[in-house]
Design a protein around this nucleic acid. Sequence first.
DNA 1: CGAAATCTTGAACAGCCTCAACTTTCGTGG
DNA 2: CCACGAAAGTTGAGGCTGTTCAAGATTTCG
Lengths: 248, 248
Amino acid sequence: MAEVTGTETITGRFLMGRRRSQLTADDIAALEGSAQNVRSLPARTLMITAGERVTVSTMLLEGFICRYMDDREGLRQLVAIHVPGDFVDLHGFPMEMLDHDVATLGPVKVASWPHAALAKVMEGRPNLTRMLWFSTLLDAAMHREWIFRLGRLGAEGRVAHLMCELNVRLEMVGLASEGRFPLPLKQADLAEACGLTGVHVNRVLRSLRERGMLVFRNGIVELLDRRALASLGEFDPAYLFPDDLRKD
Amino acid sequence: MAEVTGTETITGRFLMGRRRSQLTADDIAALEGSAQNVRSLPARTLMITAGERVTVSTMLLEGFICRYMDDREGLRQLVAIHVPGDFVDLHGFPMEMLDHDVATLGPVKVASWPHAALAKVMEGRPNLTRMLWFSTLLDAAMHREWIFRLGRLGAEGRVAHLMCELNVRLEMVGLASEGRFPLPLKQADLAEACGLTGVHVNRVLRSLRERGMLVFRNGIVELLDRRALASLGEFDPAYLFPDDLRKD
DNA sequence: CGAAATCTTGAACAGCCTCAACTTTCGTGG
DNA sequence: CCACGAAAGTTGAGGCTGTTCAAGATTTCG
């Protein structure tokens, strides 16, 4: 059974399940102390536009956020889905501008850090710096897995793999259990994530449902046969660097 | 006409074309001074295996390196192609282990930095730290574009987009000009990059050749109509953060 | 020079898309 | 609370893109 999920603090879920233990109390306090502007946003809200200069970075406290790019015809390709505890656009700190859009999926609660404050917090805290860096690289690892999904899996495998990933990530922050978790996506959103059409995602979901593997309805995912889904999606959670995989 | 490409020094091509100017002479000297073990490797050499613990990071000085993941049947999905000046596995510094394999394409010359040395160099050099972080995030931006390629483009667009990217990146380090550059890939490798079969890549290349857009033969790429290729691949180099796009 | 790797081409097939219609759910105002 | 329109989900039929399998041509390299 998991610990209390620490939503009392802003950074309570940051890096949960991933080396969070390497952060000292001082690291956490310093980070926590420089947060500003905790606020709520409604569903389907554009937060950042590609090319825009960014001066703050945002952590997702509750809800879901996605990052995406538009093709010529305005069709979106999702490149990331964020869950509570994710530092959504920390890469904006070294990058200074983003190459993609950021928007909420469902309603969210977020906190932000001015980049100047981040720089100050990191000064003389190489370990915290490295953990923040690490968290942006976790996103990169998820990007790579996303590439794998699109490049090497068929439609069913893509959906299965994505659902397996979200399940593990949400479990880490105490928001999924027994393969059940909320996911405020439309079938069309899932299609934009998986490089498919909404119509085909519908067929894939039906197939997975009829085979007793997964049900996705009303924004709730239920993984009924995680073993089969992991196999279908060739899913191995190692890239999420879960603590329970570490040998040291 | 570009400057001399600075191959006299190990880090000569690092971040060339991308904010390198933000590094002070001291930053560069410190980084340069802690490099070790410049060496050559033959083509098609496995450098790092997924899951392996890494304690050094490697910069590519000459040649090409790729990163990839294997699917169940052993088919590869490339997730990155590196060109000279790239810090190939700097993400191994905060990550401590990689989630994918790294291998040479053609023969290469590389230099490495023990992670301990990197940590020391970064101490008290927040600007250098941020630039190193930035360079790992450039890879992440390229990952995102890779996702876009696979998710939203057809076969011809994927090849066109990848070739456009490589052209820009190689131009930045003085290794491409007039749309002409070396690329030691087989058609099968290109297929593994683009999520296609070797057979289909062959047909795509023929089509692009017949339409006067691109010739790829004997490890040499010639972009004959960069405008058409950029359009076909919906390519916009902004995500590579080229200096000549900055407005400040 | 010969063997192996790579490239090339054809033909048939499969997976996913497109288009279109219909059903269900959701959201809002009366 | 119901009625209504809009949004989301569902299903079918047909078509296109890329795959698979197979054979032959060319290049590379020992």
